[in-house]
Amino acid sequence: MCTYLTEHLEIKGSGKGAEGWFKLDQASVYFDHPVHLPLEHSLNIDFLQPSLGPSARVAVELDLGSAKRLADAIISTLAQVSEGLLQG
């Protein structure tokens, strides 16, 4: 099904797409049909810079287990970073 289950967030970062690196200021996280992964549904993340057009996008499609492990790894990594570095 088309779940429409989407979270949008503003971000500050950079990503590398087909044309090289570009600034990112938006992300969409959603659970829906993947384009490429051979599953009916997946956890998909789009990193976007809308001002550069639709193709300024870094996309990933993950199965549920991978998505959870990625989320845990991000939290775990950030937890290990010293307070001083987090300021930057």
Binding site: T6, Q26, S28, D46, P50, P54, S55, R57, A59
Partner: peptide, 11 residues
């Protein structure tokens, strides 16, 4: 591309 367009429309 259709997938980029769909992502934009979704956003």
């Amino acid at each position: 591309a259709p997938d980029d367009a769909a992502a934009t429309a979704r956003a």
